[in-house]
Amino acid sequence: MSPAPPAYTSVPVWTREPVVEEPDTAGLVHTVLQVGPDPAAAAVVADWCAVLAAAPPVRVLPHVCADAEEALRALAADLQDARVGHRVLVAGSARDCLAVRAAALRAGLTEEELTVGVTSVAVRDVWCVHCAATASAEVDLEGVVACPGCSRSLLVYPHVSRRSGAHLGFQVDAEQLPEPSGAAR
């Protein structure tokens, strides 16, 4: 993959291509989330669990979740009374991993306590700055997507919110002057 342009500071590398990170065996308790039924995600989780099982005494809390919503519920339950020393591992699409990251950070986890195993990067959430609706679509960074709220064509700006996991979208031609039409507008 080409190196990230300088403006991509908030775009995790694992949202540009699938990356499977290694578990951090220094943690004492590990919440392991498989999001979606993708066999690739299941394989990542199986590898992780094998590594963790071989590590010094750690507690593993595995969850196989149908979708991101279910994963966030499982995560919230695990982190409710979690102590420092906890780690979160999430396998699934980049979109699901971003959603889990946002919830984990909100619960007090740090980036270095999160391990992702990304199986696909095709779908992105794009938050519209004009109407605050969120589009969810197969679109590349700096591509264009239609806003489901206000129908504007949104540029997928290379900024990813840590808080929501969505990309920033704004009207793609917002800074272009309208074509001169002869008649007064």
Binding site: D24, L79, A82, V84, G85, H86, A107, G108, T110, E113
Partner: peptide
């Protein structure tokens, strides 16, 4: 609780002890 940060100050050997114990308890460097 998750979300806690640790701050230490003292002689070098003391801070090494604190960091070692923290690592043992699963605290990441950050």
């Amino acid at each position: 609780p998750l979300g806690t940060h640790l701050y230490t100050c003292g002689p070098t050997g003391f801070m090494d002890l604190v960091h070692l114990e923290a690592a043992d308890a699963g605290w990441p460097a950050g």
